[in-house]
Amino acid sequence: MTKGEIVAGCLAPHPPHLVYAENPPQNEPVAEGGWEQLRWGYERLRESLAGVEYDAIVLLSPHWQTYIGTHFLGLPHFKNLSVDPVFPNLFRYHYELDIDVELSQQIHDRAAEAGLSVKMMENPDFRVDYGTITTGHMFNPEWDKPMVVISSNRSRDYYSVEVMQEMMMELGRVTREAIIASGKKVVVLASNSLSHRHFTTESEIPEDMSKEHITSHAMHLWDMRMIEYFRTGQAQRIIDEMPEFTEQAIAESDGGGLSWLLSTLDIPKYPGILHGYGTIIGTGNAIVEWPARNHKEVEE
């Protein structure tokens, strides 16, 4: 069998505002646009991957929060209505998605072998979290690729950013191994924002872009620091600074997505492509692609 491959790894944030602003037929509320910089960023990301063939999307979402280890969606098909519990005014999305159960099980089994606490989710009534749906929609609005959906193990809450990262690095490593062993071509997505301090009020028109800005200068500085590392191939520094970043920028990297992503990519030394940056209700969001398909020689 041919070796599997990660063709790209992406930071692909999931504020539901992006889907809301796109007005897809699956979402009930209607918007007058908004957050264009980020939506154009997603457009560039999709264009960048338009000619690239791949079999599956592997995604880790911080809004499927599990406290008892890491869970994987384990049924072939999910269909339901996803209503965001925080922004139900913006996100009520009728979804249907396919799961690559085989690959999910392979990653699950390797993680179990490595000593991580894992579980397959096989309850058909389960509602897929809105982080997965938002990133899934923005990355692939056709929903024509099967997915592997991985929960966010809240080990940060239970222990520390350091322990969380150690576990996520391990999960990233076994994810990569499982993908290579599967013979499949895969895109990996970490669905999280950078700085994550929200406004606690919402403007009357949520998409009123005259109200949108970062919550504070300190948050901006942290976001730009991370983006600089993304753009200059310094993934190791991101790993090194993850505890400070996560704590000081109240970053959504607390869910483990970013650490996991960089680990699946074997801590890339090549630059990531910044497709977009923007704030959403004060939080900082970057869309970044590491085009692993173009850097095989660096990795092997």
Partner: peptide
């Protein structure tokens, strides 16, 4: 609706 717990989904709906 039907509630399924994020962690304890194996207990049922």
């Amino acid at each position: 609706w039907v509630m399924v717990d994020h962690d304890f989904h194996d207990l049922g709906s």
